[in-house]
Lab assay of single mutants.
Amino acid sequence: MAAGGDHGSPDSYRSPLASRYASPEMCFVFSDRYKFRTWRQLWLWLAEAEQTLGLPITDEQIQEMKSNLENIDFKMAAEEEKRLRHDVMAHVHTFGHCCPKAAGIIHLGATSCYVGDNTDLIILRNALDLLLPKLARVISRLADFAKERASLPTLGFTHFQPAQLTTVGKRCCLWIQDLCMDLQNLKRVRDDLRFRGVKGTTGTQASFLQLFEGDDHKVEQLDKMVTEKAGFKRAFIITGQTYTRKVDIEVLSVLASLGASVHKICTDIRLLANLKEMEEPFEKQQIGSSAMPYKRNPMRSERCCSLARHLMTLVMDPLQTASVQWFERTLDDSANRRICLAEAFLTADTILNTLQNISEGLVVYPKVIERRIRQELPFMATENIIMAMVKAGGSRQDCHEKIRVLSQQAASVVKQEGGDNDLIERIQVDAYFSPIHSQLDHLLDPSSFTGRASQQVQRFLEEEVYPLLKPYESVMKVKAELCL
């Protein structure tokens, strides 16, 4: 049975990233139509530049190519590739079939990587351009969430054990800070992308030097003109047959890092959902379990974690691919890159769409948070109580021993009897502590235990987050809708 299948058929496997999760716009960027249309555009740009620099290419040939950029006979191309065992030459023939007058000058002087690699770089750039505003929107939604809850005390956790208090907004800023680093890295790697350009079979530009009869300047002009037509500021000066596969490492490393950030955020949300302090959106008709109707599973956060793990592992592909590119190139890269580049971007696209949807509907339960604080705060307040007693004339050592005994009794009630923490009640009825009984409410005010959390939130948002989001103001209103 021949390899390949009808990918629109229910009898043929289709990647869930495309069929179930990723956005239509990201799927289109990695589609065959987008790819092969870009090949034709690159052939047109090459012909236009070659004509401008004096090669015998007519206006009629150029116009014929322009008129057929979208006229792609995919069936013919597939048949040609089956016959020739070469995808680029299959599309040269297919393009030439609908451009008979231009057929002889299509791909003039070029090698397969002229269309293959340059198209990949265009796709990487455009895919990054799709991700950047999506990530900015996630940051914006979380920034709104953090600002609104900047002063809401909550129990902090280290080692997932109760620690000092923080605020809900401050905790959210930990998430935002990681995503801001990801946004900066995505922008950097996007701006650092260079075009492969017009380089020939081993990167020496020998074929173009021959076409222009040894004119170095025209060869350099050709490279520059096509690079500018493709919208790049610069091209690699040095290439082998391909652009260095280190570029793929750079791009997928940034995406993998984004995956790590999203995994951490969504894990926190899942843990908070278990504590009943916070939940992701839950639709009115949504079913959490087929057997347990009360369940409210954090399905979206779980999906993000599941896909983020996949995204983090994909960076190993370009690392290994770059390491086995012998001399000017081997074909070890080809099949692998067809999979890992598309999957990385479709996965990143999915987790950003999902995280935006989550961040637009996060639900906080202040009463649950308050109750958990009441359970733990008495123990945390013991040092403040000791200091207040010393100020009232008591002995630190005597007070410490009193607190120690009462704390152990209260802990026994919590752990052995399943009761509430009654340390404060014990202190309130103990005559030894009568000098500070009137101060206990103040000493137990949760806001006095959150330090500068709310001020940190305000400063972080104003100095770091809002300036970073400013270039994306025009796209901030787009909502994230999930079908599944």
Rank of each mutant, 00 (worst) to 15 (best):
L142D: 09
H437V: 10
H437R: 10
L258A: 12
L132Q: 14
G96L: 09
A143L: 06
L443C: 07
D216S: 10
V168L: 09
N336S: 14
Q285E: 09
L46R: 01
S31G: 12
L311R: 01
G361R: 15
N336D: 07
L255Y: 05
R374A: 08
C305G: 09
K276T: 07
H97M: 14
E283R: 07
L165E: 00
L444A: 03
A453S: 14
D120Y: 09
F195H: 03
M312F: 05
Q375H: 07
Q416S: 11
L355W: 08
M278T: 06
L346C: 09
D430N: 11
D216N: 14
S67W: 10
E401S: 12
D430C: 11
L108Q: 03
D129P: 00
R396A: 06
G109Y: 01
H107G: 00
F30C: 09
N384C: 12
M299R: 01
D333M: 01
L179K: 01
L121V: 15
C113F: 00
V364W: 07
D248C: 03
I105E: 06
K199W: 00
T111K: 01
D441W: 08
V262L: 10
D120A: 07
G169L: 01
Y466F: 13
G197C: 08
A90G: 15
V219F: 04
P10V: 15
T242Y: 02
D11E: 10
E370F: 14
E302D: 02
E328Q: 02
S334F: 01
S257L: 07
A335F: 06
Y432L: 08
A342S: 14
K477F: 12
I265F: 15
S323P: 03
D117T: 00
V168E: 04
D129K: 14
I373H: 05
I265W: 11
E228V: 09
G116A: 14
T38W: 04
W326Q: 07
C305Q: 04
I122L: 15
S67Q: 10
S359P: 12
T267Q: 14
G419S: 10
A18C: 14
Q456Y: 03
V115K: 01
K402I: 08
L423H: 06
I62V: 12
L252A: 14
M299C: 08
F282Y: 13
R452S: 14
E425R: 14
T350V: 15
S412P: 05
V262W: 03
K75I: 11
D59P: 10
K233G: 12
Q221P: 01
I122T: 06
N336H: 03
L469H: 02
P16A: 10
S447K: 14
R404P: 03
T119E: 08
W326G: 04
Y432S: 11
F28M: 13
V138H: 10
A47Y: 00
C399H: 09
M380C: 04
E79F: 12
D422R: 06
A453W: 03
L121N: 09
G288K: 03
L131K: 07
V29R: 07
K35D: 02
F95K: 01
Q375P: 04
H263R: 04
R37G: 11
R396L: 05
E50N: 05
M299A: 14
P100M: 09
T94G: 11
P293Q: 00
S15F: 15
E148K: 12
D349T: 10
G231S: 10
I237T: 09
T239S: 14
G54L: 08
G214S: 10
L406I: 14
F95S: 05
E280F: 02
R196Y: 09
R188F: 06
K147H: 10
H7L: 14
T227L: 05
I176W: 02
D430G: 06
E376A: 05
D120F: 08
L443S: 04
I238F: 02
V324W: 11
F282E: 07
D11A: 08
L272E: 09
M76E: 12
Q161D: 00
M278G: 04
Q63P: 05
A206I: 05
L69V: 11
Q241C: 02
R296F: 08
V363R: 07
A90D: 00
Q164I: 11
R40G: 00
A163L: 02
T38R: 05
A206P: 05
G259K: 00
V315N: 06
C483M: 14
R396M: 03
L132M: 12
H263A: 11
E417H: 07
F236A: 07
Y365K: 05
L155K: 01
H437G: 07
V414W: 05
L42D: 00
D59I: 10
D11R: 11
Q439C: 14
D120V: 08
K35T: 10
A3S: 12
L377A: 03
D349H: 07
F95A: 09
G361S: 15
S19T: 00
Q439D: 15
K276A: 05
F345A: 12
P446W: 03
S412E: 14
K233E: 10
V429W: 11
T201P: 08
M476W: 15
L53E: 05
S434Q: 12
Y432P: 05
L131F: 13
S454E: 13
K199Y: 02
P471R: 15
L355T: 10
D6G: 09
S306C: 03
A163C: 02
I238D: 01
S253L: 11
P378F: 03
I287D: 02
K218G: 10
D445W: 10
